[in-house]
Design a protein around this nucleic acid. Structure first.
Lengths: 212, 212
DNA sequence: ACATCGTCGATTGTCGACAATCCTGCGCCT
DNA sequence: AGGCGCAGGATTGTCGACAATCGACGATGT
């Protein structure tokens, strides 16, 4: 039951049925979903973990409302995690996996170009999920789980505000959306630049340390 | 109350009072901590998030028991996160922070050399915590929170099994312990090599993709 | 008019009892 | 003897009621 409640509440939030900032009163929700407050509270805890809900003790819980900084954090951390995922995949690479990844990304680009937001969101989540799954790194997948809900929340809010979902192939996550798209070289440059930047900044930081 | 229960249970687990694999029966714990099963369950959920406890529906929950693969995942993900943290710190670097980091690392090395495991664990956690805190990246700090408990669990188990805590200055996390220690150059090479390896493997992966 | 304090409603936190589910071990059948 | 089914005990899952806490509103005194 608990998982089912979390699922339904998550759907209600991501669909915009319960908008960001809206209060989530436990008694009201327990009536709505026809469960006691016990399971409902545990469902809320899970959604808190996923970043869809925020709560302040003894006063109330609300649907999360992401700031610009939040979104920047989501995307920057996702980039770091995904680069790490690629590192993990490389030693166990196989052609079937890469073909599957390529196929899914093609499907993603088709849905994006068709303007079917719901389908493209779903397809994109599957695409990224495949990358993390292929890494075989359970903790990494767990970290991705903690990001996915926040991403969806942002996409949903952005879509309702601007009529299109937030990330598009030429937008925030172009680094990976472009990966298997029109310009493979551009994508290679982009990821390569990002990582080289990381190397450089880290090494500069290290050099800046006081000598012993 | 809930946070207090989680705290006490966490202490009991990390101290080895309740060893890995031991069953955690809700009724017994609710008697032990003199709270109802409601708050106790929420405390358990939190410890599950921290990786200290595992549960299987309708059968029982136990103290987590880490496998070799688990530990490898913990350390590899921590490396990725910490490199990302340094990237975040760089633009906002300031000398006071670096001096503070240096000071804490010196304290860490002192406690390690003194063989005071409890103190060195605490000091090392503070040290890493400072890095993540300085990144100003809340999601990153959250990810670190998800790793910290698992690290502590491993250290505690390793200490009881081998008489010393797991990570030492010449061990797993030497890449960062050495950072401000004896051989700054070695640490620079280590982090640099790690990141270059990441760049290389990712680029090889990208090149291996089928052309459009 | 304004500040301060108390009261009240709303919401979350906690509790004890009951229901659903799963594992174990025993009896029974083949 | 070996496998199967079934009851019993143990454990988690769920429920409804009560307690603790917080924020807002209004009374009251200066």
């Amino acid at each position: 039951m608990r998982a089912h409640v979390a699922e339904r509440l998550r759907t209600a939030i991501l669909s915009g049925d319960i908008p960001p900032g809206a209060p989530l009163v436990e008694t009201a929700l327990s009536n709505r979903f026809e469960v006691s407050r016990g399971p409902l509270r545990e469902a809320l805890r899970q959604l808190i973990e996923e970043g869809l809900v925020v709560t302040v003790p003894y006063t109330g819980t609300h649907v999360a409302s992401l700031s610009v900084e939040d979104v920047q954090e989501i995307y920057s951390l996702r980039t770091a995690l995904e680069i790490f995922a690629f590192e993990q995949i490389w030693p166990h690479r196989d052609d079937r996996f890469r073909a599957e990844l390529r196929r899914r990304n093609d499907a993603l680009l088709v849905t994006i170009d068709a303007g079917d937001d719901r389908a493209s969101i779903s397809t994109e989540l599957e695409f990224h999920g495949l990358v993390y799954e292929a890494s075989g790194h359970r903790l990494l997948q767990r970290a991705w789980n903690g990001l996915r809900g926040r991403l969806q929340l942002y996409w949903a809010a952005h879509h309702r505000a601007h009529g299109r979902r937030g990330p598009r192939r030429d937008s925030h996550d172009s680094y990976i959306a472009a990966a298997f798209g029109d310009d493979l070289d551009a994508m290679r440059r982009e990821i390569g630049d990002h990582m080289r930047r990381g190397v450089e900044t880290t090494e500069r930081f290290l050099r800046s340390l006081p000598a012993r």
